[in-house]
C-alpha cells in the first residue's frame, strides 16, 4: 500500500480520468436512503452515504443472471462480453464483506460467474463516520488495509488516497497531475486526529466477543421460538446482507420449447422451500429453525469455516426487517441484555 493526496476539488476530474477502467457505480439518493447506481453526473454521488440499500454484491452476482443457454444440440456458454465496472464509495465494512465474498467464491471451487465479474471490477473505498446503526467496531471490521484498489480518507479539504493494488496504481497513473505525492507530518497528524474523532463516534455498543460460544449454548433457547413467531419469512434480511451469497438455480424454457437457459437467482435461507428435500420433508420446517440457521451462520459459523464471522456490522439488516429481528437484537437477546428498540 502507498499513500498520496488528492484535493477534493480534483475528485471529479479524477473520476473522469479513470473512465477507461469501466462504468462508475456509486451511492445516490433514493427516497430516504441510498442506492448503488451507475453514475455519469458525478455531483449525484452522495459522499456522506453510509449504506446503500442493496450492497455491492448485486454487481458481482446479480439478483438474476443466465448461466448458459441450451438447445437441442446441447449447452452454449454465454458469449456476452461483460462490462468493466468501478465501484465507488465502499466503506470498510463492505470491503471486509467483499474480501469474505472473494474468498468464498474461490474456496474449493472457483465460481466462474463471480470471477469473471470480479476480474472486471475496480473498487474505490471511502472513509466514513458511523451512525447509530453501524457496529463494525464490534465486529472488528472498521478498518481495512485490503479489499480495495484505491481508498479515500476524507481529511477536510483533501483526501488521503491509499493505493492498494497494481490496478489502483494504474488508475492513479492515468492522471498524475491530479495527485500530490508528498504526504507530510502535518497530514499524518490530521489523519490521527480524524481516527480519534471517528472512534468516538460509534454509538451502537455491541459486544460480540465470545459470541460463538453463546450461540452454541443457546441452541435450544426458547428465544428462537419467540423470534420465529414474529418472523414473516420475507427474506429482506438476507437480500440486504453483503455476505449472503445463497442462490437458486432455475431453468427457463422459451415458448415453443427446445431452447432456453439455466438461470441463477438470489435465494434466501428464510424461505420455507429452501431446505425441502424429495417427498416434501423439510429439515427446517419451523421459522425458528430458519432464523437459527441464519444467525448461526452470521455470528458463529463462518468463524468455524473462515476463521471470522460473516457479519461485518454494516447495519443493513437493522431497519430492513419489518419486525425488528436483526443481528443486534438477536445477539443482545441471547446474552440476556436489554434491547432498546
Amino acid at each position: 500500500m502507498r499513500a498520496v493526496k488528492i484535493k477534493k476539488e480534483n475528485l471529479f476530474d479524477f473520476l473522469e480520468a479513470i473512465k477507461p477502467f469501466g462504468d462508475l457505480w456509486g451511492p445516490v439518493k433514493s427516497g430516504d436512503g441510498y442506492v448503488l447506481e451507475k453514475v455519469t453526473d458525478y455531483s449525484n454521488i452522495e459522499m456522506s452515504a453510509l449504506r446503500t440499500r442493496i450492497p455491492f454484491k448485486k454487481l458481482l452476482f446479480p439478483p438474476k443472471f443466465t448461466m448458459f443457454k441450451f438447445d437441442e444440440k446441447g449447452i452454449r456458454s454465454s458469449d456476452e462480453e461483460l462490462p468493466r465496472q468501478v465501484i465507488f464509495g465502499l466503506h470498510p465494512c463492505d470491503l471486509h464483506a467483499l474480501l469474505i465474498m472473494d474468498n468464498f467464491h474461490s474456496l474449493h471451487y472457483v465460481d466462474p460467474y463471480y470471477r469473471e465479474r470480479r476480474e472486471r471490477t475496480a473498487v474505490i473505498g471511502l472513509s466514513c463516520f458511523p451512525d447509530d446503526r453501524c457496529f463494525c467496531k464490534a465486529t472488528n471490521t472498521h478498518y481495512t488495509e485490503k479489499g480495495f484498489d484505491l481508498f479515500l480518507t476524507d481529511l477536510g479539504d483533501f483526501y488521503i488516497l491509499w493505493i492498494g493494488s497494481s490496478l489502483g496504481d494504474d488508475m492513479v497513473r492515468e492522471c498524475p497531475e491530479l495527485v500530490d505525492e508528498e504526504v507530510t507530518h502535518d497530514d499524518l497528524e490530521k489523519y490521527i486526529a480524524w481516527r480519534k474523532k471517528r472512534e468516538s463516534n460509534f454509538k451502537l455498543k455491541l459486544d460480540f466477543t465470545g459470541m460463538p460460544s453463546i450461540m452454541e449454548l443457546s441452541y435450544d433457547s426458547p428465544l428462537w421460538d419467540e423470534l420465529g413467531e414474529k418472523c414473516l419469512s420475507c427474506g429482506a434480511c438476507t437480500i440486504v446482507c453483503p455476505t449472503c451469497p445463497c442462490f437458486n438455480v432455475i431453468d427457463e424454457v422459451d415458448i415453443g420449447g427446445g431452447t432456453g437457459e439455466r438461470t441463477r437467482r438470489w435465494d434466501s435461507c428464510m424461505f420455507r422451500e429452501y431446505s425441502m428435500v424429495a417427498g416434501g420433508h423439510n429439515f427446517r420446517e419451523a421459522r425458528s429453525e430458519r432464523l437459527k440457521l441464519r444467525f448461526t451462520h452470521k455470528l458463529q459459523a463462518f468463524v468455524g469455516a473462515f476463521g471470522e464471522a460473516a457479519c461485518v456490522g454494516c447495519g443493513r439488516c437493522i431497519g430492513a426487517c419489518p419486525v425488528d429481528i436483526d443481528i443486534q437484537t438477536v445477539a443482545q437477546n441471547l446474552k440476556g441484555e436489554e434491547v432498546k428498540a
Binding site: F247, V249, D267, C269, Y274, S275, A278, T296, A301
Partner: peptide
C-alpha cells in the same frame, strides 16, 4: 446424509447443516 442441493460445489447454500457445514463439500 441427504440434503437439498442446487450446486454441489459449496456455493448455493441449500445443503448447509448446523449453520456452516456444507453437506456437498
Amino acid at each position: 446424509l441427504e440434503r437439498r442441493m442446487k450446486c454441489g460445489v459449496g456455493k448455493c447454500g441449500h445443503c448447509i447443516i448446523g449453520g456452516y457445514i456444507y453437506t456437498c463439500l
